[in-house]
């Protein structure tokens, strides 16, 4: 699926550029995209290093395992493959909480830690995603948002009479998305397992 989408994006781009006589745009755009990607990764170094340090402390203090135990009833349904009290569950919960509160800077490192912990449990091919990872990413990308910080800032900048008017609708829309994400994920999970 990703192979196809990736290929389609590039091939369509080249064809359109070629037929409109602006073929040189392709190389420029590719380099610009690559440049942005490297910058994004480099910017991640600082926050990831910081949060990995803090998370190691939380783990050593037994807090991550404690969080995993507290949320176990809910998570057992979504992540049956992850053993009880595994640090992966703690990191997943922290990532989702940070997402809900709109704390993007903290959410990403927690999410990457959760991925690392889940990769340690990967008994299949190390290049193939596990079911737990798919479920986690479905939750992560569709997660309920209580405060869409950036867009409220932009509304404020353009003199909105009520910048936060969209908070209620946003919560509703994300809740719908999350319900569908969980349903689709559970469906595909059982479908793939029984094949």
């Amino acid at each position: 699926m990703v192979n196809f989408i990736w290929l389609a994006l590039i091939v369509l781009g080249v064809i359109v550029a070629g037929t409109s006589g602006k073929i040189e745009i392709v190389t420029l755009a590719a380099l610009e995209g690559a440049n942005n990607a490297v910058k994004t990764s480099l910017n991640l170094i600082a926050i990831i290093t910081f949060w990995l340090g803090i998370m190691k402390l939380a783990e050593a203090a037994g807090l991550v395992q404690c969080l995993a135990r507290l949320t176990r009833p809910l998570l057992r349904f979504l992540f049956p493959e992850i053993p009880q009290n595994h640090p992966a569950l703690g990191a997943i919960v922290m990532n989702l909480c940070a997402n809900i509160l709109g704390l993007g800077n903290a959410a990403t490192p927690m999410g990457l830690i959760a991925m690392q912990e889940m990769q340690k449990l990967n008994r299949g091919n190390f290049k193939t995603a596990t079911s737990a990872m798919c479920t986690f990413l479905a939750l992560n990308t569709s997660c309920i948002t209580l405060i869409p910080t950036i867009i409220i800032g932009i509304r404020l900048m353009h003199n909105s009479a009520d910048p936060t008017a969209i908070v209620g609708p946003t919560i509703f829309a994300t809740a719908c998305g999350m319900i569908v994400a969980i349903t689709v994920d559970r469906f595909l999970y059982f479908f793939h397992r029984n094949r």
Binding site: M1, V2, G111, M133, A181, L188
Partner: peptide, 27 residues
């Protein structure tokens, strides 16, 4: 998807793309 899977070296995303896009469309 790219960032999270990339950080652990995963290139085969299985059904993660489908559930992600289904959620986006619903939202």
């Amino acid at each position: 998807l790219t960032l999270y899977f990339g950080s652990v070296g995963i290139t085969r995303y299985r059904y993660a793309v489908i559930s992600g896009l289904a959620a986006d469309f619903t939202t």
